[in-house]
Amino acid sequence: MEKKDTADLENRIPIHEVWDKVLMLPIYGIVDSKKGQDIMEAILQKVVATKSSVIILDILGVATVDSAVANHLIKITKATRLMGADCIISGISPAIAQTIVSLGIELGEVKTNATLKDALAAAFQLANLKIVAIGEG
């Protein structure tokens, strides 16, 4: 029964391995406590399976970010830290940034970026990787 649940979770929450040991999960729509729990478990499974050191959570597609959603996200970042991996949240729009601060939500140590591109750059740095154009030293 456990194996079936694992495969089922992977289908519902597809986490991309964008590079060796770098994961990315775009989150869409409503994040309620069940979704938050599922995401957390899917990430934990994937981190173990791929031995990843960084995961990027892109929240550009998340409907609303209130304190409940923020708490689910913070829980997820705590969980990845307990696996020895880093978590970066990307897709923070000016609107979300305003909401988070005005609601008094403290993200603390959680790293965040506005765009996925910036988050990727940060992730590569954390994973000790460097991208060099072909033809350059």
């Binding site: 957390m40 499974q45 173990v48 307990l82 020895g84």
Partner: peptide
């Protein structure tokens, strides 16, 4: 720390900054 145990730890609450985990 096993994933199943992580799930419980997260609910348990704030983990001290002295508790630092490395991947392996």
């Amino acid at each position: 720390i096993r994933p199943e145990v992580v799930a419980s730890l997260v609910d348990l609450g704030t983990v001290s900054s002295d508790f630092v985990v490395v991947a392996d």
